[in-house]
């Protein structure tokens, strides 16, 4: 199925949990901020959040800035 991650379309397996997706990207889940369809997903909910067709996911982090 198709989801949109950071503005780019991506194909993933049906029924994937957000946590699985993060593991597939080799990201340490604690480091980042996950916004699914404009809602912040807290770390403890990553395992139970199942991605759906055309979900919009933003994976963000704080960086240096002035």
């Amino acid at each position: 199925m198709l989801i949109i991650v950071n503005g780019r379309e991506e194909q993933i397996a049906q029924g994937s949990a957000l946590a699985e997706y993060i593991r597939s990207k080799d990201l340490a889940s604690g480091e980042f901020i996950y916004i699914l369809n404009e809602m912040l997903i807290e770390r403890e909910r990553l395992e139970n959040t199942i991605l759906k067709e055309r979900d919009r996911l933003e994976v963000l982090k704080f960086v240096g800035g002035g």
Partner: peptide
């Protein structure tokens, strides 16, 4: 102390500034 919020680049996910 100021910082910024950005999308993660999956090819080079730099460390969290915090």
């Amino acid at each position: 102390i100021t910082m910024a919020l950005r999308r993660v680049d999956f090819d080079s996910p730099a460390e969290n500034i915090l």
